[in-house]
Design a protein around this nucleic acid. Structure first.
Lengths: 338, 338
DNA sequence: CCGCGCTGTGGGAACGTTCCCACCCGGCGA
DNA sequence: TCGCCGGGTGGGAACGTTCCCACAGCGCGG
């Protein structure tokens, strides 16, 4: 019947026979409390089952102990889910250690993005993690301007000013293509990702660099633009086969596009890897289950998430910390498609 | 140099030449404001670029406009990612419409679960969405006791007291098995999910019911327990084949287990679907890419998420709303494995 | 013509914390 | 013995909002 209100710091203080301040000090681990007072406070807390109200605390400290993870909804579809699940796992792991809340924001379109901006301005988060940014990311620009601590997964370009963590797209792609060349493939095509994203660019650059390092000249007519989707991979494969029927290998900038490419190859009666070798990028669950199992480049996604969280927390902690740029190594996983 | 503090409601009031209360009223859409005052306030807001501080508001309203989505980390691994991505998409869609924040909580183990409880007690969320509950879910019990609005994805049992949304596991499984029987299969085995979860139970019950409805007696020796994992599926398939080499169909309670089963069948030289038909449950991305493509039961996961969010919001809105139970229909997707 | 009610308004209090400051007290050095 | 210092303590103010209430002005009915 009587709607019992939860105990406040005052209740605790009264119960323990001390002042509010002392309770607050115990709560925040201050040294300036006598052992006796501390013991009494702790006992009162336990007896009353007191939990500090973090909203009230946030009001005065101007901190929310929460960060936002912003993900474009379009990227959360299709086969990229494992990527996000792993990323979230990494982020979440580090955050819970420090008692920071993770607020997930899926942005569907521009209007929601604006709404988000206001939600951020509304002081509900101490920092932002931003995933898969395009080269011209308005949100990133705004965050930069607002001076809110921000860490990107990936970067807008090589001269990124915000802190970021990315996997070694250039190195991974280089390794994948070098592997194909080493196995004696001579016409290695590539299906690129969206070229308005740095990932797309870097992986294409890797394709070029591998040729260069092998002392070959990359045949630019073997480059076909994709968009990271399965259907995009299929389409790209089709036009590559039309244009260059003699190709004997394909490096796709994502597993999902590789899956599309595999389908198209099969449809046209090319055998993998006998006629055409295929390598993807990401090592998603899918890769193990294609026919044949897909060689690919594994990214340390969970570790990317962990690093992002760590960097963000440090930027939140110390006002003007150095911007950090981190590139984590990838690993080539050779299966049966190459 | 001068660290400019953001404008508060007072600044706006002064600028507009009105009192705090009037600004507050405009902000909250009260009717009791003259058109003139409203206009002046709105202009001041725009000029100052004012955004209300939601933490301060939360302190007095005792609302945070945020809900937690709690996911056991173990369930976020393996092939179940698409499930979570879709669920999150659904939840997030509804929440952003109402300006509610989504706080994601991955619980790794019991200790984190306790921490979570405190985080919830700390009044940082207005309600909780809880995913894939086991029969004895301490957290659910606690939430129930605390009286915090809660909606489950799935249920603890048939007599669930909290609100929940689930897909029609019983119906879907029944349909899948009926389909196998209709196609002339006579020894239809099943690999169950974890039986400490209602999903596991219900899908097994569907297997039984399909037999019953077809006027056959279900052969209980064709039931093998799995745990929703690929490896579990493989193991279960192996012991089924040992025990009942003559089986000609398998209904696996998850796609991932079906994938494991397919692998084991292939290893033992059984052809799918010629020798043994296989049907999974979930229709994850995987299902389209197995060899052969997997028949499965599609769950309306995104819709489950949407429904959960809607129900939770309504429970938060009106103090003692009716508990709601919602079962959404599934759909059999026949591919080439059956 | 007076009061009553209704519309619009604003100031004070409250929400539950932290921080600043003032205070008390005991020990120690001059 | 006195003053100073520093550890331990508590009360007041502040954080930015909403809610309660009081009040001004105005029209209208008795």
């Amino acid at each position: 019947m009587s709607e019992r209100r939860p105990p406040t710091i005052k209740t605790v203080a009264a119960r323990a026979g001390v002042g509010r301040t002392t309770v607050s000090r115990v709560l925040n681990g201050s040294e300036l409390v006598s052992a006796e007072a501390r013991a009494r406070v702790l006992e009162a807390i336990k007896e009353l089952n007191y939990v500090p109200n973090s909203v009230a605390r946030g009001l005065v400290t101007n901190r929310t102990e929460a960060v936002a993870l912003v993900i474009p909804e379009s990227e959360s579809r299709l086969g990229s889910e494992p990527f996000f699940a792993a990323l979230i796992r990494g982020v979440s792991g580090v955050l819970t250690e420090t008692g920071t809340q993770l607020q997930l924001v899926l942005v569907r379109d521009e209007s929601e993005r604006d709404q988000l901006t206001s939600s951020i301005a509304t002081r509900r988060v101490d920092g932002v993690l931003l995933v898969s940014v395009r080269v011209q990311e308005r949100l990133a620009a705004m965050l930069e301007e607002m001076g809110l601590p921000t860490v990107l997964a990936g970067r807008r370009g090589e001269d990124e000013r915000l802190s970021y963590v990315t996997s070694d797209n250039l190195g991974g792609a280089t390794e994948a293509v070098a592997h194909l060349l080493r196995r004696g493939r001579v016409r290695v095509a590539t299906i690129t990702g969206s070229l308005d994203m740095d990932v797309g660019h870097s992986r294409l650059a890797g394709w070029r660099r591998a040729h260069e390092q092998a002392g070959r000249t990359a045949d630019e007519s073997l480059v076909e633009a994709g968009d990271f989707s399965e259907e995009g991979g299929r389409r790209a494969m089709r036009s590559l086969l039309e244009r260059a029927p003699a190709l004997d290998a394909v490096f796709a900038a994502s597993d999902l596009m590789a899956v599309g490419a595999l389908a198209e190859l099969r449809r046209q009666g090319r055998r993998v890897p006998d006629d055409v070798a295929v390598v993807g990028f990401e090592d998603s669950v899918l890769a193990r289950h294609t026919n044949p199992p897909l060689s690919t480049v594994r990214q340390p996604v969970e570790e990317v998430g962990r690093a992002m969280a760590r960097i963000l927390l440090s930027e939140i902690g110390e006002a003007d910390a150095e911007r950090q740029r981190l590139t984590l190594p990838t690993e080539l996983v050779v299966r049966e498609s190459s």
